[in-house]
Design a protein around this nucleic acid. Structure first.
Length: 562
RNA sequence: GCACCAUUAGCUCAGUUGGAUAGAGCAACGGAUUUCUAAUCCGUAGGUCAGAGGUUCGAGCCCUCUAUGGUGUACCA
């Protein structure tokens, strides 16, 4: 899709070799006002090199394209060189590029041979997933899909929170107040209630804190009772969260809890002890980071136990040994930024240069919920509520009940996921039922609905495509705008990749859907003359394949009926 | 105290490496449908881009300061 711009750049450099450094495909802009043209080359930066005012530069460059058939017109407007494509040539170039798969193949080559390790979702044992966990899961999974799309080999790791003082708390709570029968009913929710109760009781009785710490030390030292309970809690939880992951079509290559790195953590302690960058401070083994403006990275607590930083150090080393990655990504809340800076800097000081390939991708928090205080909104409950509202809308639809139920679930999920992914990663979100459950305007269901329209037309049409259609029939304004939007796909996925920002794809897909809906309103497909019908179907086939991939990248369920 | 993040229409948000007249959705009001699925489309209205300086041909975007909100700040994760 860049071939037209490429040839423009080639021609400019041929005539003005001095612009070799400045002129590139990325120098093009999308004009603010479509009347200016389809793509624009601002000449302001060129003026210094050529020692002429921008307007004069643009005038010179304009001459190069006097006889170029790729363009309908090339104009100089106040220093901008505005190009209007020949619509027919443009439609042909963009649509065949998609329909013969070459755009996807091209993108697939970019990450070929490279490996990326991504750590996301990372749920906690004995905590039922709530709306806050959705962000890491969905953002992480979307980043995985973007890398995968660009041909990377991706290792997905779910770094379960299955270790730490919180398990001391849980073990203490279960031994003190636990009931086997209740545990059997809904294990995860029951364990979570115990956890909430612990924090309430702890407020009145501070001695509980040290009791919990003791249990964690026991757990680390291999105490059989502690280990047995821990393993049970863990098994119950994984079983439970896998159901949720299946529901939203998320999966992992490895479930590796912090407990997995337990022996590695002990090796890390030995290694750090022997290293000149470590010291004992207030009874704890730490790596001093004062020089870098950070608090020390604690490797061994004063009570002898490991801490999350120990386990993260061990995990990073382990992952590098096992996978030899070209890139490693952690998707967690923004508030863990300092923690990861400490871990990364510590590994650097310990001589692991590869840690420079690691990056923390932070995201904003969901405000107004807290597990400790107990005012949680569970993910499953949100999906269920969304589904029931969808079913209400669908009640008069002529669709088989079983199928309707499945579709409603997917629409509800699409709504919840999209409202989360559509915002910039770093922004905090105030949880709001009304917004999550709205299905009008820029929402997941809108995207799915538009997709259903596309698929239905293709299915119902009897047009048969033999070779290439007549592209001159795809040159009206609305069609042209749609094709132009389709042509942005390549640069959008690159920018989503560079910024690790799924919301770029979310807003792109909204635009694509809007342009399609406009097209749909004005241009009929079925019942038109054969050659018109065929050319429009050719367009829709390209659109469908592009659109479906965008939905998949965003983790929004693909459906063909609603 | 220090550090990081945010601040754009009544509400929720886009705004790509600085570029032409700052854009959507929701809510409000008006209009389009005997449909290739109206969960749609078209229109009206809504702005001191938190504030003040600075950098330059040009700043919502970069720099400095201030204000407001959020988060973090050694043995929680």
């Amino acid at each position: 899709m860049n071939s037209i711009k490429d040839s423009v750049i080639q021609k400019i450099i041929r005539s003005f070799p001095a612009l070799k450094e400045l002129a590139s495909v990325s120098a093009f802009e999308v004009p603010k006002n479509p009347e200016f043209g389809d793509t624009a080359l601002p000449c302001f930066r060129f003026s210094a090199v050529l020692k002429k005012p921008p307007v004069a530069v643009a005038e010179e460059l304009k001459k190069i394209f006097r006889d170029d058939t790729s363009f309908e017109s090339v104009e100089n407007t106040g220093g901008y060189l505005n190009f209007k494509y020949s619509r027919k040539a443009f439609a042909e170039s963009v649509l065949s590029d998609i329909n013969d798969g070459s755009v996807f193949e091209r993108l697939k080559e970019e990450g070929s041979g490279k490996t990326m390790v991504i750590d996301y979702s990372s749920l906690n044992i004995a905590k039922e997933p709530h709306i806050g966990h959705l962000r890491s899961t969905i953002i992480g999974n979307s980043i995985y899909r973007i890398y995968d799309f660009l041909g990377w080999k991706v290792i997905r790791i779910n770094h379960l929170g299955d270790w730490g003082t919180q398990f001391g708390k849980l073990i203490y709570a279960f031994i003190s107040w636990g009931d086997e029968k209740e545990l059997g009913k809904n294990p995860v929710r029951y364990l979570q209630d115990l956890y909430v109760r612990f924090h309430k009781e702890e407020e009145n009785d501070p001695s509980l804190s040290s009791a919990a710490r003791d249990w964690f030390v026991k757990l680390e030292n291999g105490d059989p009772e502690a280990r047995k309970l821990w393993q049970r809690f863990k098994d119950y939880t994984i079983e439970g969260i896998k159901k949720t992951y299946d529901r939203i079509d998320v999966s992992f290559d490895f479930y590796r809890g912090e407990g997995y790195y337990e022996s590695g953590a002990k090796d890390v302690i030995k290694m750090v002890e022997a290293s000149p960058v470590s010291k004992i401070s207030e009874g704890a083994l730490v790596i001093d980071l004062e020089e870098y403006g950070m608090p020390p990275c604690i490797v061994r607590k004063s009570d002898g136990a490991t801490i999350y930083s120990t386990r993260d150090l061990a995990a990073a080393i382990d992952r590098h040994n096992e996978f030899g990655f070209d890139k490693m990504i952690y998707v967690t809340e923004l508030k863990q930024q300092l923690h990861f800076s400490q871990v990364f800097k510590s590994l650097e000081l310990l001589g692991y240069d590869w840690i420079k390939k690691a990056e923390h991708i932070g995201f904003g928090s969901i405000l107004g919920i807290s597990t400790r205080k107990g005012n949680v909104i569970y993910l499953e409950d949100i999906f269920d509520e969304a589904k029931s509202r969808v079913l209400d809308i669908m009640k008069d639809r002529d669709i088989d009940e079983t199928q309707k139920d499945i579709i409603a679930d997917k629409i509800g999920i699409g709504a919840v996921i999209f409202q989360d992914l559509s915002r910039s990663r770093v922004k905090n979100i105030e949880f709001d039922w009304e917004r999550v459950l709205s299905f009008d305007g820029e929402t997941g269901p809108y995207l799915q609905y538009s997709y259903v329209r596309i698929v239905n037309i293709i299915q119902k049409s009897s047009a048969v495509i033999n070779g290439m259609p007549d592209f001159s029939l795809l040159t009206d304004d609305v069609t042209y705008e749609l094709i132009k939007t389709m042509s942005y796909f390549e640069s959008k996925i690159r920018s989503a990749y560079n910024e690790h920002e799924p919301s770029v794809m979310a807003s792109y897909l909204i635009n694509l859907a809007k342009e399609f809906n406009r097209f749909y309103r004005v241009n009929r497909i079925i019942g038109e003359e054969n050659d018109v019908s065929e050319s429009r179907i050719f367009l829709l086939i390209a659109l469908e394949s592009l659109y479906r991939r965008c939905l998949q990248i965003l983790n929004i369920p693909v459906i063909d009926k609603m």
